[in-house]
Amino acid sequence: MSEAPLLNATAITKTYGSQIGCENISLDIHEGEVLAIVGESGSGKTTLLNCLAQRLPMTAGRVSYRMRDGTTRDLAGLTEAERRFLMRTDWGFVHQNPADGLRIRVSAGANIGERLMAIGDRHYGQIRETAHDWLSRVEIPGVRIDDRPTAFSGGMRQRLQIARNLVTNPRLVFMDEPTGGLDVSVQARLLDLLRGLVDQLALAAIVVTHDLAVARLLSHRMIVMKGGRVIETGLTDRVLDDPRHPYTQLLVASILEV
């Protein structure tokens, strides 16, 4: 790709005391590209994602991002106000547990409208119309707009969380095990939906998953982590069809057995 990357990470390390979270990781992500981060439990996927998303202070390394105005900024140099603005406009963050990413005490419509109101929308009717539109895009019936997420199934909550993030047309979305806590059939539907949205909106996404099928379906490229380090990286099909590192071979073999 000739264009400059949307996000660049260089030599990211995060330690928790003497415990290594992730170590010396560099990566690029381009506009419209989906990157999967896979690896076993404790390999450092969430740590890396949170460092990239500026939700966790890094021990070392730097992350730069090409802002909407075209300038590339070292994210450590953003003011708190700029950082928070970026996070709720040009970025999204989808948590594994929807309760972590939703406001449980207000309706679905208010959940979707929150970002719009945060950036200054002051027309109730328009906010509601947009919320309605997004509900249908994530396949939640419009009549549920005034229901609270507590009245939703797990799959619906996750779809609501996604809608709430996408309403400002972010260019980059971080997801940590987005299909994690769901039943298999619900997972499949959510994956289809996510794939459709990512395509339509030309979203860039960084998706943490321990499920290689999720990586296969959603991502263009993937990195495989073990013990806080990247041990293999490449186009998703290449890594899954022709894994080079013995550990990746083991991972792929283990899912083919079932």
Binding site: E80, R103, G113, Y124
Partner: peptide
């Protein structure tokens, strides 16, 4: 405290939105 400092008052309108919706 951060929200006041950064003038992030969108939540106040979320509350009013919810009022109208309900």
């Amino acid at each position: 405290r951060i929200m006041h400092a950064l003038e992030e008052y969108g939540l106040m309108h979320v509350k009013l939105y919810e009022d109208i919706a309900q």
